[in-house]
Nucleic acid binder design. Structure first.
Lengths: 338, 338
DNA sequence: CTGAAAGCGCTAACAG
DNA sequence: CTGTTAGCGCTTTCAG
């Protein structure tokens, strides 16, 4: 199939290609008759505008780069689902890249986006990213940039996050109010802001309710179901007394529940458990697991809207970066209800 | 920040831009000294090659369009994870589009990809797609195209799917061998090939083991946890006798288990249940739910590899389309073990 | 209302 | 080994 360009349409109609271009772009200074004729022959010939050419000329690609750690984590795929939905409605397409939680791979992604001349980048940083990572250059170049959930503190750009401090606080407060006193908190060993915030919420809740902070109850490690099981085994083996566990995310919480069951501890009767993320399984397992909802799809839609709003304003970096903070929702389920 | 082009580098070094271009592309006929000088000034000036320009000129974008129903379904996000990983290693970037299960939206996606001059398209069709949908044109235009999981039967192009017939057969056979006799099958009301295949597997297994086909035991509808519950309620209300349920996917199976429990039926003692998809929750709930694993990440990697292999061969459509069929894995868990 | 012409930044053939 | 030249298919001024 021969590639059809505006020149072919022009020849067909004995007009110039610039008239064709204008007709196709619905330029006001073109007669309705010409427009109609152009559109008809365009359809007849199977013409498809070449976005590559128009991008080169106009300097706009109508493409947004989306850089996330990994798409097989439901949190991220849900957010991307939200972003794509909104961007698509507004005429943008998504160029997708996964950092696989690696800073090096993340920088490759940024480089690819820069070469691809995306109109902007929406990202959530990898676990390895330090400081602003490779995003400093993006901002310096004046390319619109926004973050969701995992935003680098070192860079002052728009973002949409949830209030992780509140999340940590709410989870802990809820456990305290339910009568639990020795609350273990399993956090990540990485120095990531959102993790630190959840920890800070945990600590402040203890403080506010007059409970002592016991370093033995604060565990750091990677997050996984297996790590949750490991923590419980370890705590029990060490003879550390505890009556509740608040974890950084749900799979760890699930591991905690499983291992507690295996050790003959009743949940929530003897030990209360609260996770984080509202993974699908938390409402299906038994006992159902209390957790914090992170409003994933909404987060994606919000960051897309914020981004579009700023794009329209023009001069993306001339305004004070807006930072939207969503309130997490505490879902009290069986694992912490006694 | 001024945009740096090869011309700026050329001026800086008092050579022509074509030498710069060749140096950057590591052309053999350029002296090592020139290459070094060019690379250094490129770095110093913060040069980023413009992919838009090179795509326009070369006719290759190094972009693959990936069109999936929705990314908030873990099956699809896992496959896309696999596709992106492999494509990325091979220098391709992913342009992402969601059909949201709508044929109209799917055609918009195809149109966008065509305009974007993607080097190829990997897709899984929407529930609404009839015949070849908008993909016929893609093939006619000679643009490389491959499908995973949901491939239109009307179009003879490469694909990677699982053997849904085998899946249906294995699930049913397993239930029969476990002593279940009156096996309900909950299928979708849509006329989708992979669903029909699972049904065919179910029917053939019954036949092979000499069990009668009872139309009352075959239910069609949408798939969701709620629909699973509804089916069980309905069957019980109608007084239909059954001792096992094989569902089209896992959420329906979960609903079945929940409703059976609510009705005082013991799973798997009185009723066996087998799902499809191996969603994360199936191994975490109680009883754990037997299901068929669809090898999602592998499916993504396979389709990407197949695609790349064909791209390299050139003349994408001159070979007989390869159709890779992966064997599903039956995961026998508590819900069907008695 | 339409035409002419320049150029976005690069690739690649042809010359030397 | 390096330079010259001609586009890729569009957008966008400037003319008429």
């Amino acid at each position: 199939m021969k590639k059809i360009t505006i020149l072919d349409i022009a020849k067909e109609l004995n007009i110039t290609f610039s008239t064709v271009a204008r007709a196709l772009n619905d330029h006001p200074a073109i007669s309705a008759a010409t427009k109609k004729a152009v559109r008809e022959t365009a359809d007849r010939l199977g013409y498809r505008p070449n976005k590559v050419a128009s991008s080169l000329r106009s300097g706009k690609t109508k493409i947004i780069g989306v850089l996330v750690p990994r798409l097989d984590v439901s949190f991220f795929s849900s957010v991307v689902h939200g972003i794509e939905g909104v961007m698509n409605e507004n005429g943008y397409t998504i160029l997708l890249y996964q950092s696989q939680e690696s800073a090096k791979q993340e920088n490759k992604g940024i480089d690819t986006f820069l070469r691809s001349r995306v109109d902007g980048i929406i990202a959530s940083i990898s676990l390895e990213t330090e400081g602003a990572g490779g995003y400093g250059e993006v901002k310096e170049r004046g390319i619109p940039l926004a973050f969701f959930d995992r935003a680098p503190q070192a860079l002052d750009v728009p973002s949409v996050t949830i209030d992780d401090y509140r999340g940590g606080f709410m989870a802990t407060e809820h456990l305290i109010k339910s009568g639990y006193r020795r609350i273990v908190h399993i956090n990540g060993y990485r120095n990531m802001h959102i993790f630190n915030e959840r920890l800070r919420g945990y600590l402040d809740a203890l403080k506010q309710y007059g409970l002592p902070v016991d370093e033995n109850l604060i565990v750091k490690g990677d997050f996984s179901l297996e790590f949750g099981r490991h923590c419980v085994r370890d705590l029990l083996a060490k003879g550390v007394e505890f009556d509740a566990v608040f974890t950084l995310e749900d799979f760890t919480a699930m591991g905690v529940v499983q291992e507690l069951k295996a050790a003959g501890k009743r949940v929530p009767k003897e030990v209360g458990v609260v996770g984080f993320a509202n993974e699908a399984f938390t409402s299906l397992v038994s006992p159902t697991v209390s957790t914090l909802d992170q409003r994933t799809v909404e987060m994606g839609e919000e960051v897309a809207h914020l981004f579009l709003k700023l794009l329209k304003k023009g001069n993306y970096y001339s305004h004070k970066p807006e930072k939207i903070i969503l309130e997490p929702e505490l879902l009290i389920r069986e694992s912490s209800s006694r």
